[in-house]
Amino acid sequence: MIKFEEVSRIYDGQTRAALANVSIEVDKGEFVFLVGGSGSGKSTLLKLILREFRPTTGRIYVAGKDVAALPERKIPALRREIGMVSQDFRLLPGKTVFENVAFALQVIGKPRSLIRKVVPDTLEMVGLGDKTDRRPDELSGGEQQRVAIARAFVNHPKILLADEPTGNLDPDTSVGIMKLLDRINRSETTVMMATHDWAMVDQMRKRVVELDGGHVVRDQARGIYGARV
């Protein structure tokens, strides 16, 4: 589903590579934790999958597409296969919960009849079935993140990327978010989650890819946060 072949990325005006010679492969339906300190290259890796920029060298395949070679006009089609959740939720403050989730479908031209059917189901799934008319500032952090997850998942993407989705949440709330992502993963969605939350990683016992200074220093099938092989 996702394949990196000796990928490096050097940002403009910098000499050190943000990502150096990374090769990983993630199968369909897999769950992968991406761990490592700040500046280790986690976000760069996720952004490369979204084709926010091209790799400096190497090849990336996402959902069967050669991402580095993808022409600009085909980027929207790639992103419709990928859901993205970030640490800061990125909700639209003027819109209700329902409208925030519906927005993701509206802007890719889905018909209103479909939106009216799919959005409530998705909100039900993330546990916000009774809060569809609230605005983001009336919700707790955990609830806001659930809205963001609903928005990322409402189009049933093949891949869900999460960049520190629990970074702003307390441990109990984080567990709820983690369970939600696990559930989404079980519906055949490939999930890749960058995190600092070692307790969560240790508990879940999923595949762990660790980055350090742009290099992959560990890729372990049922890993924990800290241990290096």
Binding site: R73, I75, P76, R79, R80, R90, L92, V107, G109, N155
Partner: peptide, 17 residues
């Protein structure tokens, strides 16, 4: 900006934006 950012993220076409 925020709205446009989300539109790009969820794959709205350039023409739509």
């Amino acid at each position: 900006g925020r709205e446009i950012g989300i539109m790009r993220l969820v794959g709205a076409s350039n023409f739509y934006i």
